[in-house]
């Protein structure tokens, strides 16, 4: 029974970073394990010393020293201040390059052509536009395994946050603005994506599958999508903009610069700095 419970418990962790399925997430998992290892040097001494010293120097123990006026020692001060400073310096040395390397804005090298995806957060669904391929999906993100995925994000409603627990971290999607995220998937499979920023009534249901496919399967999927004969037109967009939930959908065509129009329509036009972070950081 207990074994079963523990086994069940580990099943939960399979949905997260410890079961990383892409290069970004693998970096992050590696960093997590490394940092946790270092932090054991902070945690273990305290967990040992607190009960040990409290118990040894308990009032009823008459076999220990009692020095009520002893309250300072330069040696101990050294032990107290220097190791934590050392650990923080060490972590800082780790943190700096890791933050540069795992910056969600940094494009990933991968096998083959990058796939561009434009994600739009709506209540309570995600729209994914493939500007290169001219198709769009709702509540499913189909990607070819191995190839780098460049995601641009915005929101057609309140602020949301796109998290791919096993593939990458998360980045906010904000109306009138463009943020970016880059990742790749190691192998074909189905992984979870979700909004983690509370966005209203059906927030809990705002989850979608990331479907990673082999190259040929992805090509076949694109062909099928183009063949549905259902474009993302005004009517379809009006339906999506309503506050509701929906199952996965596929659109065969998308008007040009649709994503930019959404940014402009939700405030970007009057924004003096519309998309300025992407402009500022186009080098990446």
């Amino acid at each position: 029974m207990l074994a079963l419970a523990i086994l069940n418990g580990c099943a939960a962790l399979d949905h997260g970073i410890l079961n990383a399925q892409g290069p970004v997430a693998s970096h992050e998992r590696h960093l997590l394990l490394l940092v946790s290892g270092i932090l054991l040097f902070v945690w273990v001494p305290v967990v040992i010393l607190v009960p040990l010293i409290a118990w040894h120097y308990r009032r009823s123990n008459t076999n220990d020293a009692y020095r009520p006026k002893w309250a300072f020692s330069w040696t101990l001060e050294g032990f107290i201040w220097i190791p934590p400073i050392g650990i923080v310096v060490l972590l800082a040395i780790l943190l700096w390059p890791a933050t540069q390397r795992d910056d969600p804005y940094t494009r990933r090298a991968g096998q083959g052509e990058p796939v561009r995806v434009q994600a739009i957060a709506l209540n309570w669904k995600w729209v994914f536009i493939y500007p290169g391929e001219g198709v769009a999906t709702v509540n499913q993100l189909a990607v070819p395994a191995g190839r780098p995925i460049h995601v641009s994000l915005t929101s057609g409603t309140v602020m949301q946050s796109l998290l791919l627990p096993q593939l990458a971290g998360q980045v906010y999607a904000m109306a009138g603005m463009r943020t970016r995220m880059n990742f790749a998937v190691d192998r074909p499979g189905i992984f979870r994506g979700e909004n983690t920023q509370f966005s209203g009534e059906k927030f809990a249901q705002q989850k979608f599958p990331v479907i990673s496919m082999t190259g040929p399967a992805y090509a076949a999927w694109l062909a099928r999508a183009r063949g549905t004969g259902r474009p993302l037109d005004q009517r379809a967009w009006a339906a999506l903009s309503r506050q509701n939930t929906t199952g996965p959908q596929t659109f065969s065509a998308v008007p040009p610069k649709f994503f930019d129009h959404v940014i402009a329509a939700t405030g970007g036009a009057s924004h003096p700095h519309a998309g300025h972070r992407s402009a500022m950081r186009k080098a990446s």
Binding site: G16, I17, A25, H27, E28, L31, L32, V35, S36, L39, V42, W43, V46, V47, V50, P51, L91, L94, L95, A98, T99, R101, D102, P104, S161, L163, P165, A168, G169, Q170, V171, T196, Q197
Partner: peptide
Amino acid sequence: MVTFVIGGFTGIILAIPPLDYVFHNT
């Protein structure tokens, strides 16, 4: 003292931006 150090441990994890990308809002 014993419990707070665990929070400090996870606080340092959250202070590292690449790890925060994963754990933020969860």
